[in-house]
Amino acid sequence: MTAQRKSAHLGKRITPYLLVIPVFIYYLIFWVQPVLQQVIRSFLDPTTGQLSLESYRLVLTDPDFIPALRNTAIIVVISVTMEFFIALFLALIIKRDFWGASIFLFLAMLPMALPPVAVGAMWKTGLTTNGWLNSLLHYVGFLPEGEKIYWLAGSTWKMLALIIIIDAWQVIPSVMIILLAGLQNIPKELEEAGYVFGGNYFTVLRKITLPLLRPTIQTAVVLRLIAAIQIWLIVIVLVGFSRLPVLVERIVYYHEEVPRLNISPQMAAGYTMIVTVIVSLAALIYLRLSGAFSRREGG
């Protein structure tokens, strides 16, 4: 009897590990080896093969490093905040039972369903001077005959703003669907109880809905944060390499645009490691601050 209970207890203790192990075996087979290679490479001198911090020195003294860091930070702070609030707003709207809600959800998800080819064609023809954005403004009478807006000419700030807006347009749905999934697990009774006790929409949202949504919010934000720090494709689609350096764009640059430069392997490895450290720290700090680790700990 006790033996049985003991084995049941042991089973219960092992179960979570059994459930988690496949993930790590999978990573071990398909992912760990190239990553380790890259990590080791970042600490080696390519000519002598000895331990060296040269990669890191190179990156930290790269004149593009600080601008890349700054641009990335600006994009991340603005886009993650903005995308989160808009996505939450959309999720809350769609959660309401209104006429057309289901179709609205479908439409709201459309931007994420479009392949890069279509999105590329969309913004290329959209933002170019003789493109559809100016055409549209022309048709509604906003742009007088002969006048044009040069969307793609201008300061770094203007380009940053464009990048943030275009990126937001495409990724908000992916944040929204996670939040929406989380919202639906909140028992209606709890929110109803909130109203019964005299709460209005916003107090119920603040006191009941959002706290219950916390794990989902943490997931949505941390995933978005990780992706936003690694933004690059949209940047080079809009302005090309080097004009508006961001961190991962630098990795791609040394990988693909100047792969044969003597310093390229070190630069790429160094930037890769620094990005990894920055992303991990950002994620860790966010999860700490939002209390993801304190919940149920030791419970």
Binding site: V20, V23, F24, Y27, F30, W31, Q33, P34, V35, Q37, Q38, V222, L223, I226, A227, Q230, W232, V248, I251, V252, H255, A268, A269, T272, V275, T276, V279, S280, A283
Partner: peptide
């Protein structure tokens, strides 16, 4: 488990 997404995939695409 999330670390996989933190490491820039573009850097290891070819070796993988």
């Amino acid at each position: 488990a999330l670390f996989v997404r933190m490491f820039p995939g573009i850097a290891i695409a070819l070796p993988m």
